[in-house]
Amino acid sequence: METIEIIGALITLAGSIFLVLGSLGLVRMPDLYTRIQAGTKASTLGTILTLFGLGLIHLDWMGKLIILILFVLLTNPISSHILARSAHYIKTPVSKLTKVDKLKDKETEKTSEANHTNPEDEL
């Protein structure tokens, strides 16, 4: 029962609160892109804090936990970027609140032969 362990436990608790907030954002947000905003950021910070807090509790586990943290920091933004890029390419609808869409403007003026129809395929 040392102070550093209690601090670690509290950090872990804060991380799990961020995870819950991320999922809550997933439920409440209006369209796919804002959901990715909530999901990626909150879950990344939540996982990092959870792992770091556990590292403070068990100091000899810190090496593997740092690997995990670096891994999450590298891969999570890449995967959400790729997902958003694909979703924009197949014209996933954006919410009514969206004001500007520069990327769409660019694509419509550049390509007209993009005969890419029905994203709602059977498969």
Binding site: L32, G39, D60, L83
Partner: peptide, 30 residues
């Protein structure tokens, strides 16, 4: 649509990384 479900899958796996770390603490095995 499928893209929204994929975001869900991503968030679920990321949360389960934290869950596995917590299970490792409860079982006390690195």
């Amino acid at each position: 649509d499928t893209a929204n479900r994929t975001v869900t899958f991503d968030v679920m796996t990321i949360s389960s990384i934290g869950l596995i770390a917590l299970i490792a603490h409860f079982a006390n095995r690195i």
